[in-house]
Design a protein around this nucleic acid. Structure first.
Length: 465
RNA sequence: UCCCGAGUAGCUCAGCCGGUUAGAGCAACUGACUGUUAAUCAGUGGGUCGGGGGUUCGAGUCCCUCCUCGGGAGCCA
């Protein structure tokens, strides 16, 4: 007898009358006056559960079946039959083997009812057993595959950039230190500083905050590349949009300018949304029921219309003209505040917006200086409800300008020799962007807290699992 | 890190101006019921009121402090 998934059975992959084995966890048990019990069985393969019908004639009916509670694991053998109830098919059990009991049903955290997301974060090891988190996990999986498929179809190569690095990629963000030194007995140099020459790598090392600088090296050889992996920021930021450990996607294209970069970003987002709409419809409809009623319509609208594109200067002008009181009055030269981004995406345009060509003073050193001398070829994709979802730029490919910018930002050129080499040996125009995977997942699922978009969230002061 | 708000049963919450033995719904358990699916009905058990300190004859309730969680801000993806 073959073990079948709940998903395969519910979508009608097997004919009625088939004898099957199904394994999974009890969601809920209902006993009927007819002397049979109904068990909703979940194996995580689909949103819907399989209804198992357990007749009283089963040898272990009275002693075991009648005591099954939420979370018990089962192996069920039986026959697929049409259901008189609301589901198309149910499993008429001929044998139910209890693989694992729930020690104390009263304190088992996952009850057959909706829980608050806040509570479920306290039981992150068990929350994948809920409808919601199982659905998020499946969407996350589908989304990750779609990322690779998108790039593969367009001739991009996936480059695995290092997780342990020695340089802070952008001078942005606090770093997690990586060290094997004994914290309680640190080796010192004669002048009293920590002697990192005795550390594992012979110098200071950190967890990466971005794979961009490394992936640029491969871009200037393979032309179209991307990274997709974990990224770490030790910022003490306590918001619903930040994680200390998150996954980032960073494509980099040679011979491209900012315009092509923005086009890629838009195509990429639309491709991913299209995939989820097609391949995870059931999950989206569940999110619509539980999280955000209009999630499907919102995504459908999003792939239909072109994103709004405008220069940073135009954005500031719109904000200055706006009939709206901002806590921080907009002014050319300042970065867009959260309230400004929200106004643009949620009030003014009501769709994603790509803001381009920011003042050079507020952006990173590697972004290409425009001919006006006061802006850089940077772009941010802003989405309603979530803010900045993509940040990208054309990179500065001219060595003398790059050196000037590094000096302006107070960076030591010696630490970036290998990065400068890219400009010394066959430099080319190139551009890329970074996309926060969990932020995108929030946007697609209608989640409002990023801690629900990653299995085991890491945030300041929280690493229980 | 800053500004708000909240911590009471396994979960979601109520608990008034400080006053007897701290409540409800759901969940759990026991039982009833001819196929249930947010099942229904009856009953039972379940609490260091986040921790510590203080005020008071008396504190879940007021004050101080710490912790945790949530919302917002900054920073960013």
């Amino acid at each position: 007898m073959r073990r079948e998934s709940v998903k395969a059975i519910l979508r009608g992959a097997l004919p009625m009358g088939s004898k099957v084995e199904v394994c999974g966890w009890v969601r809920h048990r209902r006993d009927s006056k007819a002397g049979v019990s109904f068990i909703d069985l979940s194996d995580g393969s689909s949103v819907a559960d399989l209804q198992v019908v357990a007749p009283a004639a089963l040898g272990n009916y009275r002693d075991e079946v009648l005591h099954l509670s939420s979370g018990c694991s089962l192996r069920v053998r039986g026959e697929l039959v049409p259901s008189p109830g609301k589901q198309p098919v149910e499993l008429k059990a001929e044998a139910i083997e209890v693989l694992g009991w729930v020690e104390d049903p009263e304190t088992y955290p996952i009850q057959p009812k909706p829980h608050s997301l806040e509570f479920l974060r306290e039981v992150a090891h068990l929350r994948p057993r809920t409808f919601l988190h199982a659905a998020v996990a499946r969407v996350r999986h589908t989304l990750a595959l779609a990322v690779h498929r998108f790039f593969d179809e367009r001739g991009f190569f996936w480059v695995n950039t290092p997780i342990i690095t020695s340089s802070d990629a952008e001078g942005a963000g606090q770093l997690f230190r990586v060290s094997t030194l004994d914290l309680l007995n640190l080796p010192r140099t004669p002048d009293g500083k920590v002697d990192f020459r005795q550390d594992f790598f012979g110098r200071e090392a950190f967890l990466t905050v971005s794979g961009q600088l490394n992936v640029e090296c491969y871009c200037l050889a393979l032309s179209k590349v991307y990274t997709f992996g974990p990224t770490f920021r030790a910022e003490n930021s306590n918001t619903s949009r930040h994680l200390a450990e998150f996954w980032m996607i960073e494509p980099e294209i040679a011979f491209a300018d900012l315009d092509e970069d923005a086009r890629l970003a838009e195509d990429f987002l639309k491709y991913l949304i299209q995939c989820v709409l097609e391949e995870r419809r059931e999950e989206l409809e569940f999110f619509a029921k539980r999280l955000e009623p209009t999630v499907v319509e919102r995504l459908e609208q999003l792939i239909e219309a072109p994103f709004e594109r405008l220069d940073y200067g135009e954005a500031i002008a719109i904000l200055e003209r706006a009939d709206h009181r901002f806590e921080f009055p907009p002014r050319w030269g300042m970065d867009l505040q959260t309230e400004h981004e929200r106004y643009l995406t949620e009030v003014h345009f009501r769709r994603p917006v790509i803001v381009m060509n920011y003042p050079e003073g507020i952006k990173a050193f590697y972004m290409r200086l425009n001919d006006d001398g006061r802006t850089v070829a940077a772009m941010d994709v802003l989405a309603p409800g979530i803010g900045e979802i993509i940040g990208g730029s054309q990179r500065e490919e001219r060595l003398e300008v790059l050196d000037r910018r590094m000096a302006q930002f107070g960076l030591n050129p010696e630490r970036y020799q290998w990065y400068r080499d890219l400009r010394r040996y066959g430099t080319v125009p190139h551009a890329g962007f970074g996309l926060g995977f969990e932020r995108l997942l929030c946007y697609l699922c209608g989640l409002s807290n990023i801690r629900d978009a990653i299995p085991f969230p890491r945030t300041p002061g929280s690493i229980a699992f």
